Amino acid sequence: MDEKDTTRLEAFSDGVFAVAITLLVLDIKLPHADVTGKLLDNSELWHAIFEQWPTLLAFVSSFFTIGIMWLNHHRIFKHIKHLDTPLMFLNMLLLMIIVFIPVPTSLLSEYIIYPDQKTAVLLYSGTFFAMALCFNVLWRYASHKGRLLGKDADMVGVERISRQYLFGPLVYIVALGIAWINTPASLVFNLLLAIFFALPDTPVRIGKKEPANQNLYKDG
C-alpha cells in the first residue's frame, strides 16, 4: 500500500460539505410585499416568518447534522494519514450522501405539516441512516488494525471513536421508527443524535509512546 498525503482528499471533502450546507438555505423564502405592492406591517411580517417554521426546523436539523458530520470527518482524519483506493471510494460515497441531504430536507419542509404523509420524513431519516452507515464503514475500514492510521496514532482515541460510532446506524433506525409516530419528534431526535456525535473524543497525542495494552491494532 502506498503512503499518500490526505490533504487533497480533505480539501475536496470540505468543499462538498460547504456546498451541501449552503444549499439548505435556498428553501427559506423572504416575505415580500402583498399583491398591491404594499409592504407588510410588523404583525403581518412576523406571521409570514412564523409560517415558515417547517422550513426553518428542517433547515436547523440538517444544518447541524451536516456541520457535525464535517466535524467528525475532520476528527477521524486527524488519525487517518494514508490513502488507498477503497478509502477514497468510501469517502466519495459519503460525500454523495452528504450533498444529497438538501433534497429530502426540502421535501420534508413541505410535508412536515401533513402527519399522514410519511414518505418525506422516512426519506429524510433514511438518508441520515445511510450517512451514518457509510461513515462507520469508512472509519472501520481505515482503522482496522491501524491499516491507514499514522504510526504514532493515539490508539485510546481511536478506540473511543470506534465505540462512539458503533451504535450510530442503530439509533438512526430508531429515528426511522419515531418518524412513523411523530414527524417533528423525529427531527428533534435526529438533531440530538448529531449533537451526541459531536461530543469530543480523547485528544490526539502524536509522538507519545503507547502502552503495550493500548496497541490494539498492531499485528503480532
Rank of each mutant, 00 (worst) to 15 (best):
L176F: 02
H144E: 13
S13G: 11
P200C: 08
R163M: 15
A120F: 08
L133R: 04
Y217F: 14
K78N: 11
L45M: 12
F89K: 14
R75E: 15
G220M: 14
K29G: 02
L199V: 09
E3S: 13
E44K: 10
I112G: 02
P104D: 14
K145N: 12
N182H: 15
K118C: 00
E44N: 05
D219K: 05
I161Q: 13
T55G: 09
F63C: 10
L149W: 04
V19P: 00
I181N: 03
M88D: 06
I113L: 06
Y141N: 04
T65G: 04
Q214G: 03
I173V: 14
L23K: 02
G157E: 07
S186P: 00
L122W: 09
P200Q: 09
T22N: 04
M92C: 10
T119S: 14
P203L: 15
F197A: 00
P102H: 06
M88C: 09
G150E: 04
L138M: 15
Y172N: 12
S125Y: 02
A198I: 08
I97L: 14
I97E: 15
L148C: 06
V137W: 13
L39S: 11
W53P: 07
A185R: 06
V99I: 15
K118I: 09
L193T: 08
L45A: 10
Y114G: 01
F50D: 07
S143T: 05
A142D: 09
